[in-house]
Deep mutational scan, measured.
Amino acid sequence: DVEPGKFYKGVVTRIEKYGASINLNEQVRGLLRPRDMISLRLENLNVGDEIIVQAIDVRPEKREIDFKYIP
């Protein structure tokens, strides 16, 4: 289970102007929005990149997770 405040290694699977889709595994994925990137710009991400993200909002009833990137 993903817990708010914990850090996870994820893989960038899609990049859109509203954010990047991050997969932690086949069943768990979430969104990294541009506003939640401290020192990383969306255009510097590539599909397949592995990054460390922090879960900031977990809504299991909607199967949604928001991530934050902290270098």
Rank of each mutant, 00 (worst) to 15 (best):
D1H: 14
D1R: 13
D1N: 14
D1P: 12
V2L: 10
V2G: 04
V2K: 03
E3Q: 14
E3T: 13
E3V: 15
E3C: 11
E3R: 13
P4L: 14
P4N: 10
G5H: 06
G5V: 04
G5Q: 04
G5K: 04
G5N: 07
G5R: 03
G5A: 03
K6C: 12
K6A: 06
K6S: 07
K6H: 08
K6T: 06
K6N: 08
F7H: 05
F7K: 05
F7G: 01
F7R: 05
Y8T: 00
Y8I: 01
Y8W: 02
Y8N: 00
Y8M: 01
Y8V: 00
K9P: 03
K9A: 08
K9S: 07
K9T: 09
K9Y: 08
K9Q: 07
K9H: 09
K9E: 03
K9L: 12
G10V: 08
G10C: 10
G10H: 00
V11S: 03
V11Y: 12
V12G: 00
V12C: 04
V12W: 06
T13G: 06
T13D: 06
T13Q: 05
R14E: 07
R14Y: 07
R14K: 13
R14H: 11
R14I: 07
R14C: 09
I15P: 00
I15D: 00
I15T: 03
I15N: 03
E16D: 15
E16Y: 15
E16P: 01
E16G: 15
E16R: 12
E16W: 14
K17L: 11
K17S: 14
K17M: 11
K17V: 13
Y18V: 10
Y18F: 13
Y18K: 11
Y18D: 12
Y18N: 11
Y18S: 10
G19C: 08
G19I: 05
G19N: 03
G19W: 14
A20Q: 01
A20R: 01
A20F: 07
S21Q: 15
S21A: 11
S21V: 15
S21E: 14
S21F: 15
S21N: 08
S21W: 15
I22E: 00
I22F: 06
I22L: 03
N23L: 14
N23I: 12
N23C: 15
L24W: 04
L24K: 00
L24T: 02
L24G: 01
N25G: 10
N25M: 06
N25W: 11
N25V: 07
N25D: 10
N25E: 05
E26Q: 11
E26W: 12
E26Y: 10
E26P: 14
Q27E: 13
Q27V: 13
Q27K: 13
Q27T: 14
Q27M: 12
Q27H: 15
Q27F: 15
V28W: 15
V28E: 04
V28H: 11
V28Q: 09
V28R: 04
V28G: 04
V28I: 14
V28P: 01
V28M: 07
R29N: 12
R29Y: 14
R29P: 03
R29G: 14
G30F: 09
G30D: 03
G30Y: 04
L31K: 06
L31V: 10
L31M: 14
L31F: 12
L31N: 08
L31E: 05
L31I: 13
L32N: 01
L32I: 05
L32R: 01
L32V: 02
L32Q: 02
L32Y: 02
L32D: 02
L32F: 04
R33T: 03
R33E: 03
R33I: 06
P34F: 09
P34I: 11
P34K: 08
P34V: 10
R35F: 07
R35L: 08
R35V: 11
R35A: 14
R35N: 10
R35E: 13
D36P: 07
D36C: 09
D36Y: 07
D36T: 04
M37C: 10
M37F: 04
M37E: 03
I38D: 10
I38H: 13
I38G: 15
I38L: 10
S39A: 12
S39Y: 13
S39Q: 13
L40R: 04
L40I: 11
L40E: 05
L40K: 05
L40D: 02
R41V: 10
R41A: 12
R41E: 08
R41M: 09
L42A: 02
L42Y: 06
L42Q: 02
L42E: 01
L42H: 02
L42C: 06
L42W: 06
L42P: 04
E43K: 09
E43L: 06
E43A: 12
E43Q: 10
E43S: 11
E43F: 08
N44K: 06
N44C: 14
N44L: 10
N44P: 02
L45S: 00
L45T: 00
L45P: 00
L45C: 04
L45F: 04
N46P: 00
N46H: 14
N46I: 09
V47G: 00
V47Q: 02
V47A: 01
G48D: 05
G48N: 05
G48I: 01
G48Y: 02
G48R: 01
D49R: 01
D49E: 06
D49A: 04
D49C: 08
D49N: 02
E50I: 15
E50F: 15
E50Q: 11
E50G: 07
I51R: 00
I51P: 00
I51W: 02
I51Q: 00
I51S: 00
I51F: 03
I51M: 02
I51Y: 00
I51G: 02
I52L: 11
I52P: 01
I52V: 11
V53Q: 00
V53N: 00
V53C: 07
V53T: 00
V53R: 00
Q54P: 00
Q54Y: 12
Q54T: 06
Q54M: 15
Q54V: 12
A55Q: 03
A55F: 06
A55S: 04
A55Y: 07
A55N: 00
I56A: 06
I56P: 01
I56V: 10
D57C: 14
D57F: 14
D57H: 14
D57A: 15
D57G: 15
V58S: 05
V58N: 06
V58K: 04
R59V: 05
R59P: 03
R59K: 08
R59N: 10
R59L: 05
P60H: 11
P60I: 09
P60E: 08
P60D: 11
P60V: 13
P60L: 10
P60R: 08
P60S: 09
E61P: 07
E61L: 09
E61Y: 09
E61C: 09
E61M: 08
E61K: 09
E61A: 11
K62C: 11
K62A: 12
K62W: 09
K62G: 08
R63N: 15
R63C: 13
R63D: 14
R63T: 09
E64F: 11
E64W: 13
E64V: 08
E64P: 03
E64N: 05
E64A: 07
E64H: 10
I65K: 03
I65P: 02
D66G: 09
D66L: 15
D66N: 11
D66I: 14
D66Q: 10
F67Y: 02
F67T: 02
F67G: 01
F67I: 03
F67H: 02
F67S: 01
K68L: 09
K68Q: 11
K68H: 06
K68W: 05
K68S: 11
K68T: 07
Y69E: 05
Y69M: 05
Y69K: 01
Y69F: 11
I70G: 06
I70Q: 08
I70A: 10
I70Y: 11
P71I: 08
P71V: 08
P71M: 09
